[in-house]
Design a protein around this nucleic acid. Structure first.
Length: 382
RNA sequence: GCUGGAAUCGCGUAGUGGCAAUCGCAGGAGACUGUAAAUCUCCCGGCUUCGGCCUUCGUAGGUUCGAGUCCUACUUCCAGCA
């Protein structure tokens, strides 16, 4: 399916966007999803520990999968023979594949990045792999997701201005090369803006990427390792003004509640993040409220349900949550499952955490529609 | 009863004459933002001013400059034989 964006309403004081992502298949059938929207991540063609029915029940629309991982295993040819990603993983909603750009950051080293492409050392068997922008798009064409991403370099937060400048130039050339080989008419291809926290670089990257012409735009290179929150917000502020109003704006990899709100405030429509599912597997449940981390940053509030204090706590995870886990199970039961290493604990917490973020986007949408997003933000911080 | 073996942190283990406390589990806590992550880090005998100090290898003796380690007796457990 190809995606189109429809801007329905902008919050009067903040400019936050309420809209629709409309997916249209080759027969003209459509699926519509309201934005702002949070997209759960299913790197290996599965949202870890959840069935598609369970993912659907959280209210999720689009989900992610990853080019790099599926290329290595089982191989894009296998997915293609299976009838494409949707059939392979039994997900009828939209799918977005990341290009492998993030793996340039997490799995390669700077020496492995050349004009031609990126050298990886496989995390599975140690063998050397080489991914190019063309190869990434070809793999994504074969996988058959609805939204596919340009192959970009995702530089670390520590990268300096000069490094970023060279990196962006290369990423722009990669974007053009990828676009040139993009064959699948039934997929939307998104470009990715980079530039760290620098105003000049973000503007330039955004303008040049838009000039190339994509079906939607992402802001990348944020929320990496020790990036300051302010730098993330700057990256958004410096990029968004140059992105087309009538196309989706995707902030890559962001999923802390504070960051969702701060980026919607700045004009972002969609997000993805591994955090709800990873936190779940590590025993943490997102709950309303905020806390300060060791560095003094405002972070999501959460319960570590493995902790001894929940052993005989027969309350739901969160009293005002409407998810399956909260409606049917107690903290004590979760504590037991997590201590016993039972997979169902991770499943229940994943359901809860994803639902938590999706409900946050639902509340944001309501607030934007009613022009009270600024008040909503005030309430969120109090 | 006899013969052999064993006894080290809550549990299981390493250590075989030279700074006891290795590793795993259990336990306590923390980290995690386009998933090398159901992973990783820290703590886990007692005190501590965080630099250290003290205790401790079933029990009691012995040999030795020095014993968890060798010897003797005892206790408990395991296996085999009666």
């Amino acid at each position: 399916m190809k995606v189109k964006y429809e801007l329905i309403h902008q919050d009067k004081t903040t400019g936050a966007r309420f809209g629709k992502a409309i997916f249209i298949d080759e027969n003209g059938n459509t699926q519509e999803y309201e934005t702002p929207m949070f997209m759960p991540v299913g790197t290996q063609a599965t949202v870890k520990t959840l069935s598609p029915e369970q993912v659907k029940a959280t209210g999720a629309g689009i989900i992610l999968a990853n080019t790099y991982h599926l290329w290595q295993r089982p191989g894009e040819d296998v997915v293609e023979k299976a009838g494409g990603l949707h059939k392979f993983m039994n997900w009828s909603g939209p799918i977005l594949t990341d290009s492998g750009g993030y793996q340039v950051f997490s799995l390669s080293n700077p020496k492995g990045i050349t004009e031609e492409g990126v050298k990886f050392k496989s995390e599975l068997d140690g063998r050397e792999l080489f991914l190019t922008p063309e190869k990434s798009i070809e793999i994504q064409n074969a996988l058959g997701a609805d939204i596919i991403m340009s192959f970009d370099e995702c530089p670390p937060a520590t990268a300096d201005h000069q490094y970023l400048k060279n990196s962006i130039e290369r990423t722009l050339r990669w974007a053009a090369r990828g676009k040139a080989v993009h064959k699948n008419e039934n997929q939307s291809l998104f470009g990715i803006v980079q530039g760290g926290p620098h105003e000049d670089l973000r503007r330039w990257s955004a303008l040049e990427t838009v000039k190339l012409g994509f079906d939607g735009y992402a802001i990348g290179g944020v929320a990496n390792d020790d990036e300051e929150k302010d730098d993330m917000y700057k990256a958004i502020e410096y990029s968004v003004p140059y992105l087309p109003e009538d196309q989706l704006r995707y902030l890559m990899g962001v999923g802390e509640p504070v960051d969702l709100i701060e980026s919607v405030r700045r004009g972002i429509d969609i997000f993805d993040c591994v955090s709800p599912t990873r936190l779940a597997r590590h025993g943490n449940a997102l709950i309303p409220g905020l806390r300060k981390d060791a560095a003094g940053n405002l972070k999501e509030n959460r319960l570590n349900l493995k902790n001894a204090g929940f052993k005989e706590d027969f309350m739901p995870i969160s009293e005002d949550c409407d998810c399956y886990a909260c409606k049917n199970y107690t903290r004590a039961y979760l504590n037991h499952l997590l201590r016993a290493g039972e997979a169902f604990g991770a499943t229940l917490l994943s359901i809860h955490n994803i639902r938590f973020l999706i409900r946050l986007t639902e509340k944001m949408r309501e607030a934007i529609k009613e022009d009270r997003f600024a008040e909503f933000i005030d309430e969120f911080y109090n």
